[in-house]
Write a protein that binds this DNA or RNA. Sequence first.
DNA 1: CTGAAAGCGCTAACAG
DNA 2: CTGTTAGCGCTTTCAG
Lengths: 388, 388
Amino acid sequence: MATLKQVAALANVPLLTAYHALSGSESVPQAQRESVRKAAEQLGYTLNITIKDVAALANVSIATVSYVLNDSAPVSAATRSRVLEAVAVLNYRPNINGRILQANKTRLVGYGWHNIKRGHAAPFLDRFTYWMAQAVESYGYHVLTFAHSEESPTEAYQELIQTNRVDGFILAHTNHNDPRIRYLIDARVPFAAFGRANDSWDFPYVDVDGRRGIALVTEHLISLGHKQIALIGWPEGSLSGDARVQGYFDALAAAAITPHPDWLRRTENSATAAAAVAAELLDLPASLRPTAIVCVSDLMAIGVINYLNRCGVQVGYDIAVSGFDDDPMCELTHPPLTTLRQPVEDLATQAVALLMAELERMPSPQRQILVAPQLIVRASTDPQRQFP
Amino acid sequence: MATLKQVAALANVPLLTAYHALSGSESVPQAQRESVRKAAEQLGYTLNITIKDVAALANVSIATVSYVLNDSAPVSAATRSRVLEAVAVLNYRPNINGRILQANKTRLVGYGWHNIKRGHAAPFLDRFTYWMAQAVESYGYHVLTFAHSEESPTEAYQELIQTNRVDGFILAHTNHNDPRIRYLIDARVPFAAFGRANDSWDFPYVDVDGRRGIALVTEHLISLGHKQIALIGWPEGSLSGDARVQGYFDALAAAAITPHPDWLRRTENSATAAAAVAAELLDLPASLRPTAIVCVSDLMAIGVINYLNRCGVQVGYDIAVSGFDDDPMCELTHPPLTTLRQPVEDLATQAVALLMAELERMPSPQRQILVAPQLIVRASTDPQRQFP
DNA sequence: CTGAAAGCGCTAACAG
DNA sequence: CTGTTAGCGCTTTCAG
């Protein structure tokens, strides 16, 4: 591709005139506009301002332009302002891809979508992605999102890193034995996760302290006078699920309450499954029947509330119910649901900070971060708050 | 940076041996490993397989490697397989950034986040982004997400396109007089939108046919025998809001029902506002009181349902209620909510198809696409479906 | 302080 | 069919 300078020379006009002619400004006489257009066509040139054009207009070398733009070498005030003037007048923006190739750094962070085909994915994850984008931009990076298949999740990660599409990754929705994490550790790819995996794996992550969270809400219930408190958790074996159960025991132990084994229930994370479990709890003999039900997710709590409503139980008065996540719908249930809010913005910011430390190869001293969730009290545990 | 070949030469070993030594394979004798490492260090080389290395190993020129990899020129079967062999054995993946610079195409599509600081954003937009990523990848592109400020939304778009970060954009959450759309049209940047703007602006978009959707659900209610049907819409002046109201009139007119003016209510899109309006509707004289309430959003419908539940009205039996969007929480309300499902996957796929047409400069004949939503009948209008 | 020149990794004329 | 070579737009030694 020819340069603007050559076009200008061929049309026998100043560089700037050529620029204005091609950029369609009205300020150039029709005749000149035409001849410049001719010249451009002849050279197969299409307007595209590069560092060369700026250099030509400012009468300096391209190196000098680069120095000015990046402050990477001392430049005299006079030349500097000539360059900046040229930049302004040509409306020049450096092509980032030149820089990328040269530096072999894309300043792009990959994020693999959690699969939301349909139905109810964790809504706080969507806010997470927003704050992640925000955080990443504050470092001059951007987020590249991609969809990875369930079967071979590592493939997409491998592809992106090996082709130099991205510099590193942020992961969410992590699992025990997460193959993506295993791969990234082994391949020494920079990444940071929102969520834990195996305790024995050493990698940077942030996570919500579910144990502390459930303890918080349990303490809250105890302080309201509840003594018979049930917990509906997930099946044993998930890191975060088991931690949440542990928080329940923590709080009860601290209050010297011995939990009856029938109070601890485990089932899958769905509204209907939780409702079924609630039915069982209601069927316990009166002396054992819980006055409060702590759920490890909002989805479950909503199932429980719906069920109790149908049975004519006054949620908040007769039986307290709590959830986890602070899903937007918590405010729309009847009554509104007490829950634990994940500090999503914090989590995103910290995850990104961890990743940046990895990218800059400045090992963060603290690569594992737990953040306590915030207890949000609503009418489902405290009827005083029914109509605030 | 030196090449692998030079390192190998310096260490006086075959290219492949040098590769294996540096990639940490155990198959190379300790002594050779050391000498290769020395050589690499001396040359300041860090392992990074490029097209040159493949060419060297296959004993061809880099052009030939490129031809094989892109099928861009005829290559004899013998050389081709030599090249492919070298590619495989060196585990070579082309650096996409070389290609990007050369083609001046990033194969990246920008998507500016709808601002979800907190609270209840449209959950179907989150699924939209997922399907968008999926669709875009089927064309060999990726999605770059970014957060744009409310005040000057065009800035981010301008920056990304002018620095050649992305080839084009997908927009969602469009408005009347949307400045982003205005800018992109004027700057002739390729894009496609999910949602409409001004009727007089010609740009590619897909949108849900809200008019048809509300007509569908109104017809459904009429077929159930309802004659007094109210509509809770948004304040006048929004494209999609007004279209939905129109659908209501369409269906009533088709059934020769003359709507009473008191049945049409307009208020902001929130659960509490809708609940207040529902209260007004209940207060109408018995002869005018609606037996069905159509809402233009699920959020509003949920507010209405909650209110009716509190009043002891049997939703679905006494009064039918419907929403719009098929928010995941529709299945969790009591009773479950009849609504209109946006065909998100379709919308995403078609929006991407439109964008691709723009990018390839193959003007799509049909640049404005409306997709009818799907009526999802649940117990809030049809109690038969209470427990399916 | 400024400029010439050598690449970054890849593609694609153009010759042979 | 294959190789030579000239870039894509930028950064960065290295000399002057």
